[in-house]
Every structure is written in C-alpha cells, then in structure tokens.
Design a protein around this nucleic acid. Structure first.
Lengths: 193, 193
DNA sequence: TCTCCAGTAGACAGATTGGTCTACTCAGGG
DNA sequence: CCCTGAGTAGACCAATCTGTCTACTGGAGA
C-alpha cells in the first residue's frame, strides 16, 4: 500500500545483499513493481533513497537488538545475551533482520569511504547509538567509570570483530567464540557479578 | 615501465579510496595513462584486474605487517607491536600501505558479499593468513594449545574491531584503546610473560 | 633484416546508468 | 463537480559502463 515504504524495503534488501553501487534504481523498480515516477516523487535522487534505507535498517536493527537485551535479566546476562543475538543473526535465525551479509553500515562505509559523506556519517551515528545501548547495560554492573568504559570498549570491539570474521571468513561461530572469551575475562577481572 | 604492474597499482589505489564498483576501467586507464588495449591484453576482464589488486594488496600488507612484528623481540612485545602498527596505519604514518580507508578486504567483501565469489574467497584467504601470522607470535609465549587458540582469537577480534571502529566511526585511536585492553587482560590472565 | 610483441590512440558497440517527461488513471475532499 | 495528489507505463536523454576493434609504432631477438 505505502509505496514509499515498499521502495525503501525493496531497496534495502537489494543493497544489503548485492551492494549499493551494484544495484541500479531500475532493478529496485522492477523488483518492487513500482513506477519510476513514483520513486522520484518520493525521493529527489538515488542518494536520498540510500539514506532512507540506512535509517530503515538503523531503526529495525536497534529495535531488534534492544528487545533481545531486555528479554533477560539486567547486567551480565544482558551483556552475554548480545552475543547470543549475534549468533542467531549469523545463523540466519532472525528473519526480521534478513539473511546475514555482514553489517550493512560497515558495508555502506566501504562504498562511501569519505568521512564527510552524509551516508558515512549516518553509519557512524548508528554505531555510536549501538555503543550507547551497550554501555547502558554495562552500567548495570555498577563498576567504576573507568572500568565501565573499558568493558564497553572491549564488548564493542569483540562484537565488531565477530561480525567481520563471520562475514569475511564465513565463520558463523564467531559470536560464540567471542562470548567464551568475554566470559573468561569477566570471571577473572570483574568477578562473578 | 611494467604496464601490468602499473595498472594494478593504479587500480588498487582507486578501488581502495573510492570503492570497486564506483571505479570504471576508463578511470583506471586515464589515471595511469595506459591504453585500453593494453589492459585487456594483460587481463581478460575487469574482474581479473580486481583479483590482481587483491593479490597485490595481500602481498604488500602482509609483508609490511610481518616486518613490523619482526622488528621487536619475540613474544609479548611482538603482539603489542601489532597494535602500534595499526595505530600508525590509522594515523597515515605508513605511506607504503596508502591513506587509511578501512581494510581493503573487508571493503571488497562488502561489494562481493556472495561467499562463492572468487574475490570474496581471496579476501577470506588473506584474513586466514594474517591470523596464522598472529598465531606464530602467540606461539612464542609457550602457552597451552587451548590458551594459545583463545588468545589468538582475542587478538584477531580486537584487531578487526579496531579497524572497523577506526573506519566507520573515524576513531583513529581505536588501536591504542584495543592495546590497553589487551595489556590489562594479559597481565591478569597470562601473567607478565 | 625481418618478425614478433607489447605498446599507442581512440572509434565503436551494446547495455546500463540516474533522471526527466508526457499522457494517463483514479480516489477523496471542498 | 472539479481539483489535487499519488499513482501508472514507458519513451526518452545524456552519460557511462565493459569490452572489441582497427591501424599504427618501436624495440628486441633470431
């Protein structure tokens, strides 16, 4: 019904699975069955359509992740649940965030490397927001500010590293490996919180 | 002189800075001043040229990294030196591996997401080789096989995470942050090796 | 000396790109 | 009843894409 939303959803799926520059607007139109005039009625250019797909993914992905972290008790369980969620994503057990093909935002930055680019900045914003979400859960551990920062940083690095390894090397178990490592570190450094 | 090598070098620089699909062969030719016939004399298609740039980067990057790790005494120092090397890369202090624009192999996989694709597989191979290089240096610590595996895994995840954060968020200090984290972990878990 | 090969410039082909435009339909509200 | 806005199909535009081709040059080895 809502053609604008339909365009964004179709465009996202194509961009995510094949790359942004590799997908032309004609393909998006053919796939969605929507007229070209309608696309350019809603979006002044392909670049704006790309921007809308970034926002769309940002909304969906963060909503999914936040809900996953809320389903368990706060603190350590929530932090470890992050990696369970990643594991489900890597194994394509989460249909609502599409077949795993790496991180859409990292992929977009690969194609729009210039940091001044609006798309690149939107991706940076997404990563900052996800980091803030993670920090919220680390805060529950009531550690010193310094330790909270360090632990947040560690979790983010492990998460990004796992996504990269899962995508490039096809190591679907990267999330569980990262989780095991994190559990060992938490046991030694933070105690059984 | 060697036109084939010149083509690969020019193509790599353009692909790395602007993305692969965003750069046409005509631009590579204009930039290098080489005739189109010569390109198609050496490479049957653009895809083969891309493959050559992957090999070129793999060679240069691994040679650079290996030499950096050999410049310090083996063991813990070499492991930490990895992050000093990354820091230099992020801050554009290593002209021979070009202006930092993320990891070329991760970027390439963003554009060639299909795991069956030859380019994707070459990138996976590169990551496997870099992991093997890191494991060699972890071996010097003479830990148990289990701990060696876990530590190698941790270092790789921190490294990949740092590259991702340095690129997407523009956090040039990601390598030093990862190094600090690793040092703390090493102190607690492995002792002052 | 002759032949071969890597190289040149650049026209050309056919497909595809992002984007514009005309002419039309149809539903809802003033 | 008529106007507006969202929608349709698809022709069209200039530019660009990968890849082919002709006609030519110049140097090195047999």
């Amino acid at each position: 019904m809502d053609k604008q939303e339909e365009l964004v959803r179709t465009a996202f799926q194509l961009f995510y699975s094949r790359g942004i520059h590799a997908v032309g607007v004609n393909l998006v139109l053919a796939e969605s069955g929507i007229a070209k005039k309608t696309l350019y009625h809603h979006f002044p250019s392909k670049e704006h359509l790309i921007g809308a797909t970034i926002q769309y993914r940002d909304r969906n992905y963060r909503a999914w992740l936040a809900s996953r972290l809320e389903q368990v008790s706060a603190g350590k369980a929530a932090i470890l649940e992050l990696f369970n969620a990643l594991d489900d994503w890597f194994h394509d057990r989460v249909p609502e965030i599409d077949h795993f093909n790496g991180c859409f935002f990292i992929n977009a930055c690969a194609e729009f490397g210039d940091r001044d680019n609006a798309i690149h900045q939107a991706c940076a914003g997404h990563k900052a927001d996800v980091t803030a979400l993670i920090r919220q859960h680390v805060d529950e551990l009531s550690l010193s500010e310094e330790l909270t920062n360090e632990l947040t940083n560690l979790i983010v690095l492990l998460k990004e590293g796992a996504i990269s390894m899962a995508h490039v090397r096809g190591n679907r178990n990267a999330a569980m490996e990262a989780k095991d490592i994190l559990e060992n570190i938490l046991r030694d450094r933070v105690g059984d919180v």
